[in-house]
Design a protein around this nucleic acid. Structure first.
Lengths: 129, 129
DNA sequence: AGTAGCATTTACGTTAACGTAAAGGTCAAG
DNA sequence: CTTGACCTTTACGTTAACGTAAATGCTACT
């Protein structure tokens, strides 16, 4: 059970950020005798997912959907099946993002090729700059 | 030479968005006789880069750096070399993003495996729900 | 039991990336 | 040459995701 400060340092975020995530229903830490927040391992796992999700273009609202899916104890079979289905869709979205980033990378590499050939050409005429 | 509306429709963004990109120095369209914006192919290419960049987690400030690199006519050799170097770094960043997204995907798949096994278990005791 | 360094809630402030409205100019069709 | 659909600039409004400050409570150590 880590304090809010320890948790913040662990993920390199501010305590305000952590409290904000609680405000919008993403985290629900335990409390100490004196009402101070205490983060068990399960909350740390959630925070890790949040931080990573943020880093790669998901909004907190989107992340919320994802995290809440893997959060509640899904007892009913139907619920479980739905969760799995929804999870698969999310994974497909991530795959799409990866593919488009790869296309972006290829385009940028193409541009570099163009610039490189310009550079080669300019090797003939030394003397300017 | 497309008008601002045609351009907006082409990329599915608002005209305000396009004007905003001009405000912050990302686009510089031509002008008609009567002072209306006209977008040649080169500006459309830039806008495409911007839209794609946005979609995958880059801020407009970051995109600005990238776009401006491939924008001005880089005449000097030193400038050209620097541009290429900087471009390579950007590509590495994109590669990193891809890798971390792939890790994210793997983790999500792991979670699905866990849920699937839960589902299998619950297949034994039919009768609830 | 005093105090330094944490924590709490409440609430206003900030920035990026636009949205939206006002007041008016431009352009193509008829 | 007059509409109607587009365009212009100016400027204030909005939302997400926190930052920051104030007033106060808790905790660990000496």
């Amino acid at each position: 059970m880590k304090t809010i400060r320890e948790t913040a340092d662990l993920f390199d975020v501010s305590t305000r950020t952590i409290r904000y995530y609680e405000e919008i229903g993403l985290l629900s830490p335990a409390r100490s005798e004196g009402n101070q927040r205490l983060y068990p391992a399960s909350e740390l796992v959630k925070l890790k997912l949040i931080v990573r999700g943020k880093k790669y273009g998901f909004s907190l609202e989107e992340i919320k959907e994802m995290v809440l899916l893997f959060d509640k104890d899904r007892t009913g079979r139907k619920q479980l099946e739905r969760t799995i289905q929804y999870g698969r869709r999310r994974i497909e979205e991530v795959e799409l993002k990866i593919q488009e980033l790869e296309e972006m990378k290829r385009e940028m590499e193409q541009l570099l090729v163009v610039f490189n050939s310009k550079l080669e050409k300019s090797k003939g005429d030394e003397g300017n700059e």
